[in-house]
Lab assay of single mutants.
Amino acid sequence: LKGVVVAGGVLAGAVAVASFFLRNKRR
Rank of each mutant, 00 (worst) to 15 (best):
K2I: 07
V17F: 10
R26M: 14
K2S: 09
V5N: 03
F20L: 09
R26H: 14
N24G: 10
N24E: 04
L22R: 05
A12L: 04
K25R: 12
K25L: 15
N24S: 12
L1V: 05
G3F: 15
L11S: 01
A7H: 13
A16R: 07
V10Q: 02
A14R: 05
R27G: 14
V6C: 09
F20G: 03
G8S: 12
K2G: 08
K25I: 12
V6R: 11
R26L: 10
F21P: 00
F20W: 04
V17H: 01
R27H: 14
R23K: 06
N24Q: 11
L22Y: 05
V17A: 12
V5K: 06
G9L: 08
R27L: 11
V17C: 07
L1F: 12
V4A: 14
A12T: 11
V5G: 08
N24P: 03
L22F: 10
V6L: 11
N24A: 12
A14E: 00
V10C: 10
G3L: 14
V5L: 04
L22S: 02
A7G: 11
G9R: 05
R23T: 06
L1A: 08
G9K: 09
R23P: 01
V4N: 07
V15T: 04
R27I: 11
G13V: 09
V15M: 14
G8T: 12
A16T: 07
G8E: 05
V15P: 00
A12G: 08
F21M: 00
V17D: 00
R27W: 07
N24I: 13
V17M: 15
V15D: 00
L22D: 01
S19P: 00
A18S: 03
A12H: 04
S19F: 03
A18Q: 01
G9H: 02
V5I: 11
A14G: 04
S19M: 15
A12P: 02
G13A: 10
N24D: 04
L22W: 04
F20I: 15
A14K: 03
K2M: 07
S19R: 08
V4E: 03
L11R: 01
R26Y: 10
G8Y: 12
V4P: 02
A14N: 01
A12E: 02
G8W: 13
L11I: 06
S19N: 15
G9A: 08
L22P: 00
G3M: 15
A14M: 15
L1M: 04
L22N: 02
A12V: 08
A12Y: 13
R27S: 13
L22H: 04
V5H: 02
A7R: 12
V17I: 08
V15Y: 13
S19Y: 08
V10N: 04
A12W: 14
N24V: 14
F21D: 00
G8D: 04
K2E: 01
R27D: 05
G3Y: 14
V15G: 02
A18I: 14
V5E: 02
V4R: 11
A12K: 05
V10T: 05
S19W: 14
A7Y: 15
V5Y: 00
S19I: 09
V17W: 09
L22I: 13
K25W: 13
V15R: 05
R26I: 12
V6Y: 10
K25T: 12
G13S: 06
L11F: 09
V5P: 01
V4I: 05
A12M: 13
A18C: 12
F20P: 00
G9M: 09
R26K: 13
A16L: 03
R27F: 00
L1E: 01
R26N: 15
V15W: 10
V10L: 13
F21T: 02
K25A: 11
L1G: 06
V15H: 05
A14T: 08
R23I: 15
K2F: 07
A18N: 00
A18D: 00
L11P: 00
V6W: 13
R23S: 06
F21N: 01
F21H: 03
S19K: 15
S19H: 15
R27K: 14
F20S: 03
F20V: 09
G13I: 08
R26P: 15
G9E: 05
V4K: 12
S19G: 07
G9I: 06
A7Q: 10
V4Q: 10
A14H: 08
V5S: 08
R26A: 13
G3T: 12
K2Y: 06
R23H: 04
G9V: 07
N24Y: 09
G8K: 01
A16W: 14
K2Q: 08
F21S: 01
A7C: 11
V4L: 12
N24H: 15
G9Y: 03
F21I: 10
G3Q: 09
G13K: 10
R23G: 05
A18L: 11
V6F: 03
L1Q: 01
L11C: 07
G9F: 05
L1W: 11
V4C: 09
G3P: 10
A16S: 07
R23V: 06
S19D: 05
F21R: 04
G13W: 12
A18W: 13
L11Q: 00
L22M: 08
A16V: 04
K25P: 07
V15C: 15
G9W: 03
F21K: 01
R23F: 08
G3W: 13
L11K: 01
G13R: 09
G9T: 13
V6Q: 08
R23L: 10
A14I: 14
L11E: 00
G8A: 08
F21L: 11
R27E: 08
R23W: 09
G13Y: 02
A14L: 11
K25N: 11
V4T: 10
L22V: 05
V4D: 02
G3R: 11
A12S: 07
R26S: 13
A18F: 05
G13F: 13
F20E: 02
A16H: 07
